Simulated scan of single mutants.
Amino acid sequence: MPLAIEGIYPALLTPFTKDEEVNETALKQLVNRLIVAKVNGIFALGTNGEFHVLSREEKLNITKMVVEETAGRVPVMVGSGGNSTREVIELSQAMEKLGVDALSVITPYFIPPTQEEAEEHYRKVAEAVSIPVVLYNIPSKTGFSLAPETVGRLAKMPNIVGIKDSSGDFSNIEQYIAHTRGEHFSVIAGTDSLILKTLQAGGTGAVAATANLLPETVVAIYNSWKAGDYEKAQAAQQALQPLRDTFGLTSIPASLKKAVELSGIPVGPARAPIQEPTGEVLKQIEAAVQFYKTNQEG
């Protein structure tokens, strides 16, 4: 894998059966659906992949399945983050052995570290593996945000190759770009409403949850921008909004899972305690999916 993260990596959902077991058939179906849509890579075991409610064994089994099903057609990046440096190193090394192309490492959460502690955490993880490492900043879920200066220092490490920023704060993305300029380092959007703005500011792509349902549309943002067709890129960016509007109706990722299920891939429910949408919320999700079917995605 080149030491750069470029283009659209769907934030892969983890399909479950009604009994909340991993649905291997649906997982393979979703991976192939995304690759056919010409995504640039697959990102598994992120926030929308419910990494936080999966056991270590489940994470490794999912990783193995995704790597095998992808079969080298696109790069595979997998979330190996956790709260202790030891845990993250052990999981990262196990995932490297399974053949992933890159690791996404979320900041430690629950007890927010200092900037110095986070920097040391990432240095130790990066030194323990030989594949690319992507930092993952999502302060609304972790209670901690990597400072641009910290990211600038970490970007000098040879295999720390990028950061996925899901802060939703565009100025934060701009600061990461400014502090890593001149390094071989990718700043990628983790907030789907900021994909085009990130590309225009000097970012290189996105990890996009909406791509589970609308992969062609999300890919069109990147491809149109790259081709210089900014009007088409903007239209594709705006087309994501009806789906994004459903995300706040439920706990993550219940709305998105229901939307993808309604589109024909049985990704099942989120794992409890997150509940399936019902009533008026379900009607709004159904309306969004119908809108895309009527308007033919892309």
Rank of each mutant, 00 (worst) to 15 (best):
L262W: 00
N212Y: 11
Y222C: 06
K257L: 04
Q234Y: 09
E231L: 06
G264A: 10
L199P: 09
P266G: 11
V267G: 01
V260W: 01
A220Q: 10
V219D: 08
A235W: 04
W225E: 09
E261N: 08
A209F: 01
H184I: 13
L194A: 05
A233H: 05
L262A: 10
A259F: 00
G203Y: 03
P269F: 01
A233L: 03
A227T: 14
D245L: 11
E261P: 03
P242E: 12
S193H: 01
A233R: 09
G203L: 05
K257M: 07
Q200F: 04
S263H: 13
V219L: 08
E261H: 03
A235D: 07
V260R: 04
A201M: 07
A236T: 13
A235P: 12
D192V: 13
A208L: 00
Q234W: 07
T191H: 00
D245K: 09
A209Y: 05
L256H: 00
A239W: 06
F185N: 12
F185G: 12
W225M: 10
P253G: 11
W225H: 06
T250M: 01
S186M: 13
A254I: 09
T191V: 14
K226Q: 15
T246N: 09
H184P: 14
T210K: 03
A209H: 02
E216D: 14
D245G: 03
D229H: 00
I265H: 08
T250R: 05
L249W: 04
Y222D: 08
S255Y: 05
I188C: 13
Q237A: 10
P253F: 01
S186N: 09
S193Y: 05
F247I: 14
L196C: 05
I221H: 02
L213H: 08
Y230A: 12
Q234F: 06
I265E: 04
Q241W: 02
D245Y: 00
V218N: 07
T250P: 05
L213D: 03
T204E: 11
W225K: 01
A239Y: 04
E183T: 15
G268K: 03
W225D: 07
G203P: 08
S255V: 12
S224F: 04
A189T: 15
F247N: 12
V187F: 00
F185M: 13
S255E: 13
G182M: 09
S251V: 15
S255L: 10
Q200M: 13
